[in-house]
Nucleic acid binder design. Structure first.
Lengths: 225, 225
DNA sequence: AAAATGCAAGAGCACCGCTCTCGCTGTGGC
DNA sequence: GCCACAGCGAGAGCGGTGCTCTTGCATTTT
């Protein structure tokens, strides 16, 4: 039994090592990860890697899940240190941005354009929602303590579509919580992506953090925070 | 002379045909464009394509410029039919979204994560700003006709960085015009990207247009429109 | 001890971007 | 009108890729 466990542990270590090297390749080389190059770095034949990952896509999926978890944890950890809803939002957003700046290629992996021919498998949808859930729960918390500003009612058929989701998450709150959470999430991630992908070229250079916060505050205000 | 012109015309036609086939490949196959496959589709040797484009990247650059121009023209055309600033914003945003839905891979090419190892050359920066300029000019127009709501002043060092740009474009207006334009542009493009890249999965299905408009209106409100 | 399993390596397939050489053809200068 | 020349297409080839299959070895299980 300990033998079998040892087998499994060695295998897990090898798997982790492959992912580590792959992450390093991703960070230095760029987005198109080469399985052969990773294998070369590990001093093994490329075919040996296929004992651990059935395909390059499966390796990418593993990296994607790890990335979702990493940014989710960073955001949650930062939010936990704040007390007020707006403070949590700001902390989470800044944490997400800083993680993205530190790991740009991994950010591109999860929030950039989908990799050609790659369809995100089931395993990725759950960790993907972690940051958005954090925003939603914080907003819901604000609703429950009556800390949300009055705004004109939401009109549009989309709000009816969001009703079931809202009912399953926050049955005591209006469905606009979901709409505003998604909108804020899109806005925040958009701001990060466009800064990261160079669309801010030559306009704001020094105080990008400040401009980012300006946008996050706008998102918060739109949500009523 | 007419001979030389004929030569040049044939060459231009061939260049255009390559781009057309490449666009079709992009639409059907996905993002990683294969020069060899394009050449095969054209019934020519892959090496012959290099007479027209020095590299795959150069082909991509040509497609990127065309895409920027196409979406820019779509947005401008739509905005021209509206009279009020908010109407122009909404029209431009919806036009951009519809273009993106119709040409998802080209959208990914210009607003998705940068292609690995690909650095956008100088030629692309000018057409890239077309949509943002449209938003900016519309907002400026609203300022000049006093149709912009009062909002709390912008604080942050970033606004000083935007001052020179604001002065060169709209010397008669406060620099926040630029900040709000960029922020709105990010928000709109973010909304399009995340809808397109599947982050809206299983939440809003029917009335995505309505939810998009909700976000665009939020962006407009944040800008004072 | 023997059988079964897990693993690494190597060869090989089809594809890729890109380069180079080699003929062919239409063009411009004489 | 001829001839050198530039532009073009085709083909071979280089090094790279993802992935498969077979082979040999080590380890685990029976």
């Amino acid at each position: 039994m300990s033998a079998a466990n040892l087998r499994a542990r060695v295998r897990a270590e090898m798997t982790e090592e492959i992912k580590t090297v792959a992450r390093r390749h991703l960070a230095t080389e760029g987005a198109n990860l080469s399985l052969r190059a990773v294998a070369r770095d590990l001093g093994m034949a490329s075919s040996a890697v296929y004992r651990y990952f059935a395909s390059r896509d499966e390796l990418l999926t593993a990296l994607i899940i790890d990335a979702y978890d990493a940014i989710g944890e960073a955001a949650e950890r930062a939010a936990a240190e704040a007390t007020e809803p707006l403070g949590k939002w700001l902390a989470a957003a800044h944490a997400a941005r800083e993680w993205a700046l530190a790991n740009p290629h991994e950010w591109a992996l999860i929030y950039g354009s989908p990799v050609p021919g790659y369809a995100a498998p089931r395993d990725t949808v759950e960790p993907a929602t972690r940051v958005m859930l954090l925003l939603g729960h914080t907003l819901a918390e604000a609703y429950r303590s009556n800390a949300v500003a009055e705004r004109p009612p939401v009109t549009g058929r989309f709000i009816e579509e969001l009703q079931p989701i809202a009912a399953s998450f926050y049955p005591d709150l209006p469905p606009r919580v979901i709409a505003d959470t998604i909108a804020a999430f899109f806005q925040i991630c958009g701001a990060i992506s466009f800064e990261l992908f160079g669309q801010l070229n030559k306009s704001v250079e020094e105080d990008r953090r400040g401009f980012f916060e300006y946008q996050v505050r706008a998102a918060a205000a739109a949500a009523g925070l």
